[in-house]
């Protein structure tokens, strides 16, 4: 999408928002806050003074639908370009450093002690970003049949290991090995499954790199005859 189109979409969004704000001001000033303050819509009777607010709500909804439509078109285009892709995406191996975000998962111990929030344990999944290191090393590589075969093999192996680990975890938790307390068992489950998912994502990339490069001779690296 061109920059001018994005600019127009942004301006239309801002206009809709301004329209809504003006309508809210109008409603509070001249219409006793109807349609803004909580009200019983089953007893709603239309009034001329409701028009600005109704128009603003309609504009916001239409804009939302328009954005959803644009998102759908963009995803469709992305999917089509992916199916036509002959080379791997260009990626900097340094993006692998994002894997350190996985350590945010340990924040869960802190938030749990403060207000029993366990959500941060999910951040362990970010360890999977370490896989970008290997994906970056194979950046912009022609995806020929051997590469695709290796990619399938690597993903299958990674998923098999991931599922086996999850099954093992469930078995151990089911037996109450980690925690007899149900709340603690849930925490272990969230943290461990997040970590395993991250590990699986990483393993897929790592194995693909290994399958692609294992047994690579000096001649192969420097260029053949």
């Amino acid at each position: 999408m061109s920059k001018s189109k994005l600019k127009i979409i942004f301006i239309v969004g801002v206009c809709c928002l301004l329209f809504l704000l003006v309508s809210v001001w109008y409603t509070y000033t001249f219409n006793a806050g109807r349609l803004v303050k909580p009200m019983d819509f089953s007893a709603y009777v239309f009034q001329i003074k409701d028009i600005p607010m109704l128009a603003a709500i309609s504009a916001i909804i239409l804009y939302g639908f328009f954005l959803a439509f644009l998102l759908f078109i963009s995803l469709l285009n992305q999917w089509q370009s992916k199916t036509k892709a002959v080379k791997t995406r260009k990626l900097n191996p340094k993006l692998g450093l994002l894997g350190f975000l996985g350590f945010f998962g340990f924040l869960g111990f802190w938030t749990y002690s403060i207000n029993k929030t366990v959500f941060p344990f999910c951040f362990f999944v970010f360890f999977g970003f370490f896989g970008f290191f290997f994906e970056g090393k194979m950046s912009d590589t022609l995806m020929d049949e051997r590469f695709k075969e290796n990619a399938q093999k690597a993903q299958l192996t990674a998923y098999k290991i991931g599922f086996a680990l999850i099954w093992l975890l469930l078995l151990l938790i089911g037996q109450g090995r980690f925690a007899a307390n149900l709340e603690h068992a849930v925490i272990v489950l969230i943290a461990a499954i997040s970590f395993i998912l991250g590990f699986t994502l990483f393993l897929g990339k790592y194995l693909l790199y290994r399958y692609d490069h294992d047994g690579q001779s000096e001649e192969e690296i420097n260029g053949g005859i």
Binding site: L142, D144, E145, R146, D212, G215, Q216, E220, G224
Partner: peptide
């Protein structure tokens, strides 16, 4: 060359190398 053959058949040079080694 391996590179030329790879380009002609639409694969990577490494694939031609592996083929030649029957790997």
């Amino acid at each position: 060359t391996q590179e030329q053959l790879a380009d002609q058949v639409g694969v990577r040079r490494e694939t031609i190398m592996r083929l030649e080694k029957a790997q």
